[in-house]
Amino acid sequence: MIQQNPQLDAQGRLRHFLTTEGLSRQQLTEILDLAESFATVSGKSVKKVPLLRGKTIVNLFFETSTRTRTTFELAASRLSADVQSINIATSATSKGESLLDMLHNLEAMHCDMFVVRHADSGAAHFIARHVAPHVSVINAGDGRHAHPTQAMLDAFTIRRHKGEFPALKVAIVGDILHSRVARSQIHAFNTLGVGELRVIGPKTLIPPAASSLGVRIFHDMQAGLEDVDVVIMLRLQKERMRGALLPSEGEFFQRYGLSEKKLAHAKPDAIVMHPGPINRGVEIASAVADGPQSVILDQVSNGLAIRMAVMSMVLGRQPAPLEQPTEAQP
């Protein structure tokens, strides 16, 4: 059975942004190119563009994340949209019904877009399937499934520092199993044609069918980092010590933490990335995080440009309601 990609509208344009999976290289490149034009806007003294004037964007964060939420808020306001953020304790929506009820309530307030973060994989797809036809959904992270704007800002950062993708070897290191960032990166990087994509970590943190995603798997850090252009470190959640996935943070750092010594196995001009927030001394040494090869702060500012690009592509598809011919109301 052929299912239409739920992210695209009838004309094949991006209606929602739920995952990097299933989008074409052309579509992903278009996002990067548009972000490039916004990156220059952010450097100017007048930072606002009127692209989404009159649009209302609601950030629905069922999981707290100050940083991601803030960049979405900033991106929306730089595009001149009205933006409202709502943090919802997951306990209030433990039943699917109340989650849907809340969405329909918000829709009644004539929102145009929901930016959603949720602890369950598939939450953004679920919401996208149930919103009214004029409402778009951007996935700001769902469970272990996807975090597509993070992956795109990472691709953007790589392109700005290292140029075109086919010449590059990229390694993603750490807790792949629980990482929505890694999943979205893998789909995006493979579609963008990255020369070689590697994942590095212990067997307990790499999903059993990882090779089906189109990556080379390494359990040895030095071998995995050999000759790579880009090293992406993932955050290790403290709760992984429970559940018998790892013995200790110390042992993880010893084998998989990025120290200057381990980084020396990568190419001399390799860049070091991290989606944040960083656990210093757990997955990355401070000397590396703050060192000359780190582009971690660039990632943060690039996040703004990517989110502006995605929001304007998704909401900029149709003419704004004010421009549409309106029928006289009775």
Partner: peptide, 15 residues
Amino acid sequence: HEGPLSTRMGLSGIP
């Protein structure tokens, strides 16, 4: 099921 789908979708698998 724990396999390619659980890996791709980020859903917890039952092996």
